Simulated scan of single mutants.
Amino acid sequence: MTLRLPQNISGLSTRTAVDVMAAEIRVEKAISLERTGEAAGKAVAALKAAAPSDPERPRLLAEAAEAVWGYFIQRELMGQGSHAAVIRDMGIPREVIARLGARPKTE
Rank of each mutant, 00 (worst) to 15 (best):
I97V: 13
H83G: 00
V96T: 03
E76H: 08
M78L: 13
G79E: 13
R59D: 15
S32F: 01
V20C: 01
A30N: 04
L33M: 08
R75T: 09
I73S: 09
A67K: 01
A46C: 14
W69K: 02
V86D: 11
E34A: 09
R94G: 14
R57G: 03
G101M: 04
D54G: 12
W69Y: 09
A98R: 13
R4N: 07
G70P: 00
S13H: 14
E63Y: 07
I97K: 05
L61V: 04
A23N: 04
I25M: 11
G70L: 02
K48M: 05
P58W: 03
V27C: 12
P93C: 06
T16Q: 02
P104D: 05
G81E: 10
G81H: 08
A45W: 01
L47P: 00
R99M: 10
K105Q: 07
D54A: 08
E95L: 10
Q7E: 10
A85N: 14
I25A: 08
A102F: 12
Y71N: 07
I31P: 01
R35G: 10
G101L: 13
E28Y: 02
R75Q: 11
P52E: 00
T2N: 13
S82N: 06
R26A: 12
S53W: 11
A39R: 05
E107N: 10
K48F: 03
S82W: 12
A51F: 04
N8F: 10
M90K: 13
R88K: 15
A49E: 14
G11H: 12
E95Y: 12
M21W: 14
G37P: 00
H83T: 15
A102V: 06
E107M: 07
V18S: 04
P6Y: 06
I92W: 01
P58C: 04
I73D: 09
A40D: 04
Y71V: 01
A45V: 08
K48P: 04
A65Y: 00
S53I: 12
R57N: 11
V68N: 04
V44I: 07
L5D: 13
A43L: 13
P104L: 08
K42L: 07
A46Y: 02
A51G: 15
M78K: 14
S13K: 15
V86I: 09
A39E: 03
A43H: 00
